[in-house]
Design a protein around this nucleic acid. Sequence first.
DNA 1: CCGCGTTAGTTAATCGATTAACCATCGGAA
DNA 2: TTCCGATGGTTAATCGATTAACTAACGCGG
Lengths: 338, 338
Amino acid sequence: MTKPRLADVARAAGVSTATASMALNDTGGTRIGAETRDRVRAAAAELGYRPNTVARGLRTRRTQMIGFIGDDVATTPFAGQMIRGAHDAAREAGFLLLMIDTSGDPAETGEAIAALQERQIDGILLATMYHQVIEVPKGIGSTPHVLLDARTADGSASSVVPDERGGTLGVLAELTGAGHTRIGHLTTAEDVEARAIRLATWRERLEANGIDHRDLLVEVEHALTLDGYEGAMRMLRKEDRPTAVFCYNDRMAMGVYRAAAELGLSIPGDLSIVSYDDQELIAPELFPGLTSAALPHYEMGRWAVRELLRRLDDPDAAPVQHLMPCPTARRTSVAAPR
Amino acid sequence: MTKPRLADVARAAGVSTATASMALNDTGGTRIGAETRDRVRAAAAELGYRPNTVARGLRTRRTQMIGFIGDDVATTPFAGQMIRGAHDAAREAGFLLLMIDTSGDPAETGEAIAALQERQIDGILLATMYHQVIEVPKGIGSTPHVLLDARTADGSASSVVPDERGGTLGVLAELTGAGHTRIGHLTTAEDVEARAIRLATWRERLEANGIDHRDLLVEVEHALTLDGYEGAMRMLRKEDRPTAVFCYNDRMAMGVYRAAAELGLSIPGDLSIVSYDDQELIAPELFPGLTSAALPHYEMGRWAVRELLRRLDDPDAAPVQHLMPCPTARRTSVAAPR
DNA sequence: CCGCGTTAGTTAATCGATTAACCATCGGAA
DNA sequence: TTCCGATGGTTAATCGATTAACTAACGCGG
């Protein structure tokens, strides 16, 4: 009662393995008669035949596996959604994901690429957990690849990143729509792509509305709750405090909530807050719920796989840089200014 | 400039592919001379030879890949640590993880097992995201497997689950050590293994200390923040409220914090709180930091892979059921009762 | 000097598919 | 009648390793 091979199916159907192979895969054009094909299929179903993809892969050089290289799969809560999006899109096309976590070590990345290539994966997804500009390791050679939440400086590789500008405009529109003009921005000093775009977009909007933004910006060291708390204390203790804050991310917003509570400011009555990331255990769980621009990790994962599959079909296709929209998750942290 | 094959290495070293294979893999006992072996190795290094594991897998029936089937990789924040633990242990042994997420659909699980077996994975990790008792699908056949955060009723498969009893005793000891006797328990109505053990252990401890626990238990529908809030309101509004609460999990504890704030109870001055899970974005970020029993997901992931590798070496090894300790993450939510 | 064990290789089979190249039969057009 | 193009297959090569079975040369004891 060993696992049936193609030869067993062929014997049961009374044909050669070549015929069986063509019948099951619908290859070989007109060579296989309809009746024969049905007979082979029936035999395969009867025996519970499942092709050995290792053998197939050796011959065809395609393994129906995609390598996913992430720089920190576990420690960031976003990773899950990104992996899931990639996983689902891959699965729908009959592919499986082979995962490697490099814990952010660039040397690891080269090793990871080699380990995946040894296994003859059909393509590679290179993911970073925060929107970044990176260089694709040379070792990747001619293996098809797509960047996820990252892009190259020269646009030589297909990539998908969040539309940070659009997302920022979205949440700022919530505030201006409610009547706010003096909108503070609380950001981090960390030098990441996301920070730069969110900051620039905020500046641009305030300038467009003729608001002096110089004293409305507070920058703290890290993008964490505690830093957010301290930054908010600095921003909100002033007499001419803003009526609304746009936070770099949800964790910092969490700190702003605490600061507001300590200062006796009610949200959204005394202070409206919007933020970025729409992070699972934070934005919806805060009280009141935090309006935040959602990072579309699931959709980016899906897009990346579909783009990779496209490049598998047509290796010479021109690389595409995609901006994925960041929809506003509207909750109750915004109201008209008093 | 195509990828070098073993035959290229062999030619460069002036030997047969058989010799080259044996030299590189240190197989074949004494048949390969030291000098020849070094020559082959040098040639391989020179050419940058990397074995084609697909071809190797076809012959040896081992692919150096482990299947990881999870029932909800993305939506639970624990998954990441579990995957990471498994990933790291696998990587150390030269294995890679092939991931499939079933989104909790049992029919998917069968499909997932088949998809992995087609690819000749060496073994399977079956993970659930909450400690459960499950049945191993028959389709797994003789493929070596280990259960992660789950176990079978009959102990027929190796498995690793958190030591819920030990973890509960640990956080309760924090409370009794500080002098608390009337310790409330806030739990969920969901029927999961973890709930039952945590509840039973809490009862047992209170009984051992001669405390009447009948009016100290509050059960709510779900294990979410809002339910925790409502449950806490019920428990804490009473005159003879407990001086400390043991929450089923951190999300519920988050609700308790909010309730305490509304009722004007300071933590830990008026109310000490301990909990379970030590969830990343919650326990350390709450103010004051929440003392919580940590679910050792990373370590469970590691253990499962090591156990799987052991079973690969010795398929007849007796299955092992392992309880992984849940260390107490001690923070500042506990103080002596007033 | 014969036979045998050791040492150090080689040759060829094998894993389980896919696919290029080849072949037989039949009906109809030239 | 003969040749040709479909139609419907089969045979055998191939993918790139591993490994069982075989072999050649050598040294040594009896």
